[in-house]
Amino acid sequence: MSSKAVKSVKGLGIFKKQGLFDKGVGALLPEAYKKFYKEWRLTEPTAVHYIPEEGKWKRDELTGEVIPIQNIPLPLSYPKEHNNHLWGGEAVVQGFQIRDKFRRRVPHFWVPVLKRSVVHTEVLNKFFSVIVTDRTIRLINSNYGFDHYLLKTPACDLKSLLALSLKRKILKELDAGCPLYKNQPEIQSRLLNKYGKYLEAYTSEEIDWYGYSYTEACNRIQKQMEEGEKKVPLKYIYRAELIDKLRAAKLEEAMSQSLKSSQSGLDATWLRKMNPFGKKRET
């Protein structure tokens, strides 16, 4: 209790910048999505483009001075196309090369080698033609299959929206008990045995919210809310209010009318009385 108070007191007078999930539609996003977002964007991915030094300290070879080891990752960039590919953790590195002792540094982009190949998911029972890197294939091989690779690898290493949405589809399929193999119970049970262990890390809601980009998630929740609330036209509300008032005044006609806005016979009875093919009224 006391620590909480101290915290709140300490926070006084300090302007806290609003984050993605503090304002607007982002604030409405469920905890399940925030968990995924943390795994995707706020976790340090595995070092692909540099070899991290091990240990806490190292000694300078010449002077014997002790220096702490601090691994600062290389800044990486991801072109928007990478969301349609599977790069397996690789990225574009922008930097400089010094090609000669007496030359000025030269800007350089290190871009992964991309090639089109085929991946096969056992759970979805589908072959996909996708653009991959050699590293992706190597990771698939070392994980004994594409499904294992997707399910084992955290979102920060999969990175691309294609991989993440495939992972969500696979997780959903497994969570539903592989309805695709309804007619082959042997394969169904084998798949659930093989991949069922990966479901332990997620709840159904987390699976439902897995692998969406921030904008996609915002759009989704907005759509959900719009569908959730039913809009009742104001005329029904006013009509019900009026009948209420008339009833209070104990008018006979009002007693027979229903109060509910939805049952307000207006649309049904009024339309039924209409006869478009009847005699034309003289005006």
Partner: peptide, 8 residues
């Protein structure tokens, strides 16, 4: 240049 690389 299109290569897979480890940098330092």
């Amino acid at each position: 240049v299109r290569t897979t690389y480890i940098l330092k």
